[in-house]
Amino acid sequence: MAKYVLRYCFELGGTCLWSVNDNAKNKFDYPIDNDELPVSKNIVDELYALEEEYHGYIDWNYPPNPSPWTTKQKLDLKKRANMVYLKLL
């Protein structure tokens, strides 16, 4: 059985899942389209929602500025991202 190694890492303007090994790259490409994952639609929807929310992390009017997010917003996204990560295991 093929082993797929993925990286779970958010990128501004991008996705949060990335292929690490050749098996994963051959099956899912790089980066990974959430819709291609063998997981429930609910998890896919959560991934898209987290990615969309993460795009607000920077000040798009002037990206070098500090993030407009509060500490609470940062911690909340991190908590929810960790919960989705556990669902992917």
Score class of each variant (00 low, 15 high):
Met1Val: 04
Ala2Ile: 00
Ala2Trp: 02
Lys3Gly: 00
Tyr4Lys: 00
Tyr4His: 08
Tyr4Ser: 01
Leu6Trp: 00
Leu6Arg: 00
Arg7Ile: 09
Arg7Leu: 13
Tyr8Asp: 02
Tyr8His: 04
Cys9Arg: 02
Phe10Cys: 01
Glu11His: 08
Gly13Ser: 02
Gly14Met: 02
Thr15Pro: 03
Cys16Asp: 01
Trp18Met: 03
Ser19Glu: 06
Ser19Gly: 11
Val20Arg: 12
Val20Glu: 14
Val20Gly: 00
Asn21Gly: 07
Asn23Phe: 05
Ala24Ser: 12
Asn26Thr: 12
Phe28Leu: 05
Phe28Asp: 05
Phe28Met: 08
Asp29Ser: 11
Asp29Lys: 09
Asp29Arg: 10
Asp29Phe: 06
Tyr30Trp: 06
Tyr30Thr: 13
Pro31Tyr: 09
Pro31Thr: 09
Pro31Ile: 02
Pro31Glu: 11
Asp33Ile: 06
Asp33Pro: 03
Asn34Ile: 03
Asp35Phe: 03
Ser40Asn: 03
Lys41Ser: 15
Asn42Cys: 09
Asn42Tyr: 12
Asn42Phe: 09
Ile43Asp: 06
Ile43Val: 15
Ile43Gln: 08
Ile43Cys: 12
Ile43Glu: 01
Leu47Lys: 13
Tyr48His: 15
Tyr48Val: 01
Tyr48Asn: 15
Ala49Leu: 12
Leu50Tyr: 11
Glu51His: 02
Glu52Ser: 14
Glu53Trp: 13
Glu53His: 13
Glu53Ile: 07
Tyr54Leu: 13
His55Trp: 07
His55Gln: 14
Gly56Gln: 14
Gly56Leu: 10
Asp59Arg: 02
Asp59Leu: 02
Asp59Tyr: 03
Asp59Pro: 03
Asp59Cys: 10
Trp60Pro: 03
Asn61Ile: 06
Asn61Leu: 11
Tyr62Arg: 01
Tyr62Val: 01
Pro63Ser: 05
Pro63Phe: 01
Pro64Asp: 08
Pro64Leu: 03
Pro64Thr: 04
Asn65Phe: 09
Asn65Ile: 08
Pro66Phe: 09
Pro66Glu: 13
Ser67Asn: 06
Ser67His: 04
Trp69Phe: 07
Thr70Glu: 01
Thr70Ala: 04
Thr70Ser: 15
Thr70Tyr: 07
Thr71Tyr: 08
Lys72Asp: 13
Gln73Trp: 06
Gln73Asp: 06
Lys74Gly: 05
Lys74Arg: 13
Lys74Ile: 13
Leu75Glu: 15
Leu77Asn: 09
Lys79Arg: 15
Arg80Asn: 12
Asn82Ala: 11
Asn82His: 10
Asn82Met: 14
Val84Asp: 04
Val84Thr: 12
Tyr85Trp: 06
Lys87Gln: 14
Lys87Asn: 07
Lys87Met: 10
Lys87Cys: 07
Leu88Trp: 03
Leu89Gly: 06
